[in-house]
Amino acid sequence: MTGTLYLIPNTLGATDAAPRALSHVLPEQVQDIASKLDYFVAENAKTARAFLKLVGIDHPLARPLQEIQIAELNVNTPAQALDALLAPLLAGRDAGLVSEAGVPAVADPGADLVRLAHQHGITVRPLVGPSSLLLAVMASGLNGQSFAFNGYLPTDAAQRAKRIGQLEARSRSEKQTQLLIETPYRNGAMLEALVANCQPGTLLCVATDLSLPSESVTTLSAAKWKARLAAGKGPDFHKKPTVFLFLAQ
């Protein structure tokens, strides 16, 4: 009998190492399941250990942290290595898939492992936790009936401008909210590119540090964002995880 692959959400940012520190983002059941596992597949082993350390404050780990096996799966992992990551599950061992932040397998390399798990008949159980993309859609006031996540845009300015134009045209024709992310230190350049290339009436939301004490969500027209930037009143989002959303009118 095969083991179960649990999809375990992580926090969206730093959390104090204190009792009940995870309670506002992760249900007790999720923490309890995570505490009982001794094999994890994670985007980053160091981050996964920090997460398990937090879990262990209220839910003692089944094994000492140094004895818990953590295998890495990230953008550099070759496809042929996935079978080895699933081998313990095929042998009957339960495992947890943990992302760097938020939910695994969404904008995350873990999706490939989940697909392979299904091919092998392994039970996959998604657990409840924070998703920056869904939180951003919820808080934006934009269309939550139809939306698309587009990941990262090209870094080349001309190609990025062209892509923004394509997505804005799609947003207008389909009345669809478009979601983007950027490397946090380039947030400013992304907002400037959106403001410069979107029509003045296009609604643009900037959602930063979601679920954290420093959380900020603001939706304005591109024209109003342009005025704010010109006045030096841009958002405080340098090096902070941010989701950008827009909806053409």
Rank of each mutant, 00 (worst) to 15 (best):
L73P: 05
A79F: 13
A95M: 06
A71R: 13
P78A: 02
G102F: 05
A87E: 15
V103E: 03
G96Q: 04
A71Y: 10
L73A: 08
E67G: 12
L54R: 12
P88R: 02
G96L: 03
I68M: 03
V55R: 06
V98A: 10
Q66G: 12
T77R: 01
Q69W: 12
N74W: 01
S99F: 02
A71D: 14
L86E: 04
A107F: 11
P60H: 04
G96N: 02
L65I: 12
Q80W: 12
G110S: 10
A79C: 10
P104F: 09
R63W: 13
I70H: 03
E67W: 11
A81G: 09
A95W: 05
P78E: 06
P60G: 05
L97S: 02
L90C: 08
Q69C: 15
A62S: 15
D58F: 03
P88G: 06
A105T: 11
D83H: 14
L82D: 10
P78W: 03
G92Q: 05
Q80M: 12
V103A: 08
E100Q: 11
V55D: 01
I68Y: 04
A87C: 08
G56H: 01
I68G: 03
Q80S: 13
S99I: 02
P88C: 05
I70Y: 07
A62G: 05
I70W: 07
E72D: 11
P88T: 03
V106E: 06
D94N: 15
E67R: 14
A62F: 09
Q66N: 15
E72Y: 09
A79Y: 13
P109W: 07
R63K: 15
D58L: 00
I57R: 04
I57A: 04
V98F: 10
P104W: 10
I57M: 01
G56V: 00
Q69I: 14
A62E: 10
R93W: 11
V55H: 01
A105Q: 04
A87Q: 14
E72V: 15
E67I: 11
A111N: 09
Q66K: 14
G102E: 00
D108N: 04
P109C: 07
Q69V: 15
N76F: 14
V75P: 04
V75I: 14
E67V: 10
L82P: 00
G96C: 08
L90H: 05
I70E: 00
V98H: 07
L86R: 00
A71L: 13
A79R: 15
V106W: 06
N76W: 13
Q69M: 12
D94A: 10
H59L: 02
L85K: 05
E100V: 06
A105W: 02
S99H: 01
V98D: 11
L54N: 04
D94H: 15
I68K: 07
L61A: 00
L61S: 02
A87T: 14
I57F: 01
E72W: 07
G102C: 06
A91Q: 14
V75M: 15
N76H: 15
P109Q: 00
H59W: 07
P64Q: 11
A91R: 13
A107R: 09
H59T: 04
L86W: 00
L73G: 07
P109M: 00
A107V: 06
P78M: 06
A62D: 06
G96F: 07
A71H: 14
A105N: 00
G102T: 03
A81V: 12
A101E: 10
V55W: 07
E100F: 04
V106N: 01
R93H: 14
A101D: 05
Q80L: 13
D94E: 05
P88D: 02
P64A: 09
L89R: 10
L86Y: 01
